[in-house]
Amino acid sequence: MRVKHHPILGEDKRKENVTIVVDGKKIKAIEGEPIAAALMAAGIRVFRKTPKKNQPRGVFCAIGRCTDCVMTVNGIPNVRTCVTLVEDGMVIETQKGLGKWRESR
């Protein structure tokens, strides 16, 4: 959910002006925001599954330190989504385990 109105920061005038593809589904995002923010705004919380026990993981630190939020982005695994900005047409996948490298474009 986006914070549109804020008593201190005011109105958020940015528009959802790009489209990203998350596990095959199109999602609107704001140019310049991190992938994790776009996913959180869309209500997505599970970013990857752990290699051994297949347990869900999501955002923990949001500043690029903990690597809990890594996903496969444009075929590249282990991308920190909290510090990687969205681009129009970006293909994002829930990462299984350590992920696989793949040529996507």
Binding site: M1, R2, M40, V59, I63
Partner: peptide, 13 residues
């Protein structure tokens, strides 16, 4: 701090 970053910088709850 992560939640704070999300709400105040990226404007997402």
């Amino acid at each position: 701090g992560a939640a704070q970053t999300m709400i105040n910088v990226h404007r997402v709850l």
